[in-house]
Design a protein around this nucleic acid. Structure first.
Length: 836
RNA sequence: GCCGGAGUGGCGGAACUGGCUGACGCGCACGACUCAAAAUCGUGUGAGGUUACCCCUCGUGUGGGUUCGACUCCCACCUCCGGCACCA
């Protein structure tokens, strides 16, 4: 009696061992084959992986295995983004040291990765929380410091009063802490920043180099950088010599400026309102606005509020005196914190002017109707013809923008300027579980960087986790007390640690020489292997991680440490797997664990279902029933190969073997084989649409089953009856084409078919264009665009032959009634359309 | 509000460059095998009509348009998802 199902447990263990022993995924530095760096975003070691995470690694594994089969020298490393807040919070609750829990989680996740059968060059494993790694994260900090790209400044940051720590912007969801949902406060603290804004233009320009990135990711980055061109105009404050510059993208509306507004944080305010008769009232207003929570300040639908300062400014183009206001809708961080208000042509200014009864002056006319400031219902923000604008009257507003900017530069009352939304990267964290910032404070010498030879600044392990508003490192005397690197006198260490995004912004360089203790990476080796040929990860990193990594690489490039400008040549962002319409999460209780499924059906089943679920860049709904379909398919293939190799007679319809030869079904089997090869190869090289690749293989398997009752084959013994060649080719193609998707079962079937070497050493098949061509084709006959009939015709038939055949068709005759059609459209080999 | 992406059977999804809508899989129904079940194999499966089994009508979010022909291109709109959001 044969086993009813294929013995996946035995098989999977066997091959996982063999791959490890044969070092299938080991990168060979001496190889002359072309290189292929296949990288998956390294995971944060949380408790355990679910099937949604699996998708990422399975996709990467398919790519890597395919490239191995195409004889590339591949680098497929894996590591751990191991510093981070969750481990520290768990430590506060449970008392278990973050290092302990992190290393445990790594163990679990590594086991899970192996159980999926995904392969990596584990000799290159890295963990960002280990001193031999973060030493070099600190080195990168020092390099940026040297270049003036790491600096300290007072800034208002997000503070969670419950967790007693600052939060990264990305940890603030709708103004509240993502973990405890407490409203986040703004606190003014001395913080370390990386000057990513210096690279805004380069980061924007080089998006053009990233042709093989998803368009939407490039767009998101572009929007995030937020370049806008405009003019900075100098307004003089009346009765003083103070110049108040303000930025505008709509210099064409300058004659329509009827008031000016400052952000409440504007540094000049205090001086300006001194002695004003309502000084107290103004101060009260400012304090109220400042007190508003982040959510309120940031939301666009909050009512605009303001107060008059009692001061006036002079519009430099017409010397008009206009009132100076303070308002809650002006941001200090963008532009200069001062904005000229043109209510006729800006909706926000319009709303504000209506509320406080400020004048509205039209300076651009709507070509469709005469505008009048008094009767307008909303601002007119489109282009138009200049009016009430002195010597610029009568020209189109688009031209006026240039002309006015030229004029201002000539008169030195303004200058063209470019602004970005991108802000400098705040990298300080008042947390324990991160890389210490390698800085020392000396009373005599001030801020001093740690000497490179003294790296790493070790993170002390004995520590109290209880949060109290500052980094827990503050209480570790041995850590804080140190000597000044310059004067060697007593000094204090920086107690903040670095944002974990710093760790992950260079890890892809470390994989090339993970154990080098002399330098972070070897320049020659990274120059050979980078940029990464294929990067795979979730779209949630579209901006942060991907922007930071690009920035760090650009800095390293400009400093001569690396020879490439962009880290990732190709990017693939996979969609999320959801369950019951929601993202899998422990709190929702909809997590599907791979462990049980692998135990029940095996890794190959889980892999093929995960790949079959839909196009990998799109979100997909997990369906346990679907897993069974994948399971059935693999068993179907298994039985086919088993019968073909062990007992070919069972494939025969009880000895009803037909004579060998060129019967049509054989030709269609060979055709189907080559169509499948073509389709699968295209999906591998192009879109990664493994769902359609798999369905093509399923079709081929179905085809083999259809012809198998006439076609026996003994693959193992190589006994080939005439005409069995196509059959053998079909089955072998199935095994090879399946190998990247379901590697264990493919290896086993390959071996049982009499092959000594791994299927990954087999030749990837090439389709034969000739095999795909059909002698006879079915052409669709349409009448007035509707399908009415079909004809079989030789594929080489001329138009006249097709016409003749069509007109002879009885169905056509029924529709035409014997009349000659008005039009005869022939799409060769496909379709005929008659217009009657 | 702005910028993306998407809307196709009961479900997940296919469809090349404008050319047979619904491949492949799930589910369902019927049949074979079986004492029976499971497993497996086979057949069918968009809706409606007609039942002479050959056909006919409708059908890819909605409404228009271009075309011999539109899921595909153009215009307007609706819904859902994602990102950004008072950026001057």
């Amino acid at each position: 009696m044969k086993e009813q199902f294929y013995p996946f447990k035995k098989i999977e263990k066997k091959w996982q061992k063999k791959w490890a022993a044969e070092r299938l995924f080991k990168m060979d530095p001496a190889s002359s084959q072309p290189k292929f760096y296949c990288l998956m975003m390294f995971p944060y070691p949380s408790s355990a992986l679910h099937v949604g995470h699996g998708r990422n690694y399975i996709i990467g594994d398919v790519v890597a295995r395919y490239k191995i089969m195409r004889r590339f020298n591949i680098l497929a490393p894996m590591g751990w983004d191991a510093f981070g807040l969750p481990a520290e919070n768990a430590a506060i609750k449970s008392g278990i040291h973050p290092k302990t829990s992190t290393l445990n989680n790594i163990k679990t996740m590594k086991r899970q990765l192996n159980s999926w059968g995904v392969g990596y060059d584990w000799d290159r494993e890295i963990a960002s929380c280990m001193p031999d790694y973060y030493k070099w994260t600190q080195w990168i900090f020092l390099e940026l410091y040297k270049k003036g790209l790491a600096y300290k400044k007072k800034a208002s940051v997000n503070w969670c009063p419950s967790c007693q720590t600052v939060l990264a912007n990305e940890q603030v969801v709708d103004g509240a802490c993502e973990r405890c949902s407490t409203q986040v406060e703004l606190r003014s603290l001395e913080q370390w920043f990386f000057k990513i804004t210096d690279y805004a233009q380069k980061l924007l320009d080089d998006l053009a180099l990233l042709e093989d990135w998803p368009e939407r990711v490039r767009l998101m980055q572009k929007n995030w950088i937020g370049r806008s061109e405009g003019v900075e105009i100098d307004f003089k404050i009346a009765d003083t010599d103070i110049i108040l510059p303000c930025f505008t993208t709509r210099v064409d509306t300058i004659y329509g400026a009827t008031y000016m507004v400052l952000a409440v944080e504007h540094p000049l305010i205090e001086d300006l309102i001194k002695g004003a008769k309502n000084e107290k009232e103004i101060k009260k207003f400012i304090n109220e606005v400042k007190k508003e929570s982040l959510v309120e300040r940031v939301s666009a639908d909050v009512e605009k509020k303001g107060i008059f300062t009692g001061r006036y400014v002079i519009n430099p183009v017409n010397n008009k005196k206009i009132p100076l206001w303070i308002a809650n809708y002006i941001l200090m961080e963008y532009g200069t914190g001062a904005v000229m208000a043109v209510p006729a042509h800006d909706q926000r200014d319009f709303d504000f002017a209506k509320k406080y009864d400020l004048s509205i002056e039209v300076v651009i006319d709507d070509p469709k109707e005469q505008l009048d400031g008094k009767n307008m219902k909303e601002a007119y923000i489109e282009e138009g013809q200049m009016v009430n604008s002195g010597k610029f009257n009568g020209i189109p507003s688009l031209d006026a923008m240039e002309k006015i900017a030229d004029y201002m530069e000539q008169e030195k009352i303004g200058r063209r300027k470019i602004h970005y939304k991108l802000r400098d990267w705040l990298i300080s964290r008042q947390r324990y579980w991160g890389a210490p910032i390698p800085i020392v404070y000396c009373d005599a010498c001030g801020i001093q960087p740690v000497n490179e030879k003294d790296l790493p600044v070790l993170l002390p392990e004995k520590i109290k986790f209880k949060p109290h508003g500052e980094s827990p490192l503050k209480d570790v005397k041995d850590f804080v007390e140190t000597k000044c690197p310059r004067c060697n006198k007593k000094a204090r260490r920086e107690i903040d640690t670095m944002d974990t995004f710093v760790d992950s912004s260079w890890y892809f360089l470390r994989y090339l020489s993970p154990k080098d203790d002399k330098r972070p990476f070897d320049k020659d080796i990274v120059n050979k292997w980078l940029p990464v040929d294929q990067y795979i990860g979730g779209v949630e990193h579209a901006i942060l991680h991907l922007m930071y990594s690009r920035f760090i690489v650009k800095v390293l490039h400009d400093m001569g440490h690396v020879g490439f400008k962009e880290p990732f040549a190709k990017l693939f962002t996979q969609g999320m797997i959801v369950k019951d319409g929601a993202k899998m999460s422990k709190s929702k209780g909809n997590v599907v664990s791979p462990d049980k499924l692998i135990d029940k059906y095996g890794a190959d089943t889980v892999r093929s279902y995960t790949l079959f679920i839909g196009p990998p860049e799109k979100d997909a709904e997990w369906n346990d029933r679907g897993v069974e379909g994948a399971w059935r398919f693999l068993n179907r293939v298994w039985r086919l190969v088993e019968q073909a190799t062990s007992d070919p007679s069972t494939l025969l319809g009880a000895g009803k073997r037909q004579g060998a030869g060129e019967n049509p079904s054989d030709r269609s089997l060979r055709r189907r084989t080559h169509l499948t090869i073509k389709k699968v190869t295209e999906d591998m090289e192009g879109s990664f649409h493994f769902n359609t690749a798999l369905s093509a293989i399923m079709e081929l398997v179905n085809e083999i089953y259809k012809v198998s009752d006439r076609r026996p084959l003994d693959l193992a013994r190589g006994r080939q009856a005439t005409g069995d060649k196509d059959f053998k080719e079909a089955i072998e193609s199935v095994i090879i084409l399946l190998a990247p998707f379901v590697p264990h079962i493919a290896e086993e079937m390959w071996e049982r078919s009499g092959n000594k070497k791994s299927v990954f050493k087999a030749e990837w098949p090439k389709h034969d264009e000739k095999a795909i061509i059909q002698e006879k084709v079915t052409m669709v006959i349409q009448i007035n665009g509707r399908v009415r009939s079909k004809i079989e015709i030789s594929s080489g038939a001329t138009e006249d032959e097709v016409k003749k055949a069509v007109l002879e068709n009885p169905v056509v005759n029924k529709w035409t009634g014997g009349k000659t059609p008005k039009k005869f459209i022939i799409v060769k080999g496909r379709l005929v359309n008659l217009v009657i």
